[in-house]
Amino acid sequence: MTDKSRHNDKNNTELLKHFSTDERVTVREIWEKSRQIKNQQPKISESDVENALSLVHNRIKKKGIDHKTDRKPKDTWKWIAAAAAVLLIAGTVFLYIPKTITAPRGKIATVILPDGSTVELNSGTKIEYNRLFDITNRNIQLNGEAFFSVKKSNSHFIVSANNAKVEVLGTKFNIRSWGSEPDQRTEVVVKEGAVHFYPVTHPGNTVIIHSGNLSTLSANIDKPTAPQPVSLNRFTGWRNHRLVFNNQSLQVIFNELERRFDTDIRMEAKGMTHKRLTAYYNTHQNVKSILKDICRLTGLRFSRTANGYRVFK
């Protein structure tokens, strides 16, 4: 927003140059008044907008300019690539070296995988897959929080995180699984379709999560929780740069803030690290105002340090 207002100020000063000093008073008044003239005609209701949006979707579908790209040419390339992989013995080793992508702290990254699926990575999240992805497998390792939009295909798309696995053919889901968290839990929320969710050690104990539901798996537990309906926005708010903490401990919250704002938060009130909070921030905040809120709620205090902040009693 500051870019735009600076731009406008530049525009305005440029305009005023063309007028004499006495003229400028009037011009300024006209300039200000005219900005307030809002054109309200014709009235457009919310249902007008929604109807128009459905029409647009229908016509996009009809025109076939959606994602249904012709698989045929791509299949040919897949075969050529697979054949080449078999021939190059030295190359085979290379093909197994995993590709790693990490979202930088303070940023959210979107990655397009070789099969056309997309993954949005929250700050500090890392994914890893080998170069035969989409050729012989669709396996991905995850440490962090990501939203997957998986393209439908016959090959199983499998995400491994901590001790859990999520398996789909084509769907949209959010998965949160940090190795650094005390119980290394994995949370999966499904937006579209259905996913299979099970622990690595007991693949038979799978649950099927349908859209709008959440299931959690913690370390040393051999079965994920029964799926419960949840408000999706709470779990995917991070995609729109919202900050959402669902009854999280201070330790987890500070870790997330460190990643999101690329800063360092030293928690010195050792007894309070497990205190839980729930908070939602819909609009862009700075880390200072969030720390202020947290301290107000918990009776703690914070101050600045060379690399970031410290929180203490």
């Binding site: 054109n39 309200q40 005609q41 014709p42 457009i44 007008d48 907008v49 128009a52 949006l53 647009v56």
Partner: peptide, 18 residues
Amino acid sequence: FDNLFRCLYPRLVRFAFK
């Protein structure tokens, strides 16, 4: 895409209406 549509559709229609 839907969000952008909802945000800009009303003002663009009023603009076209002119």
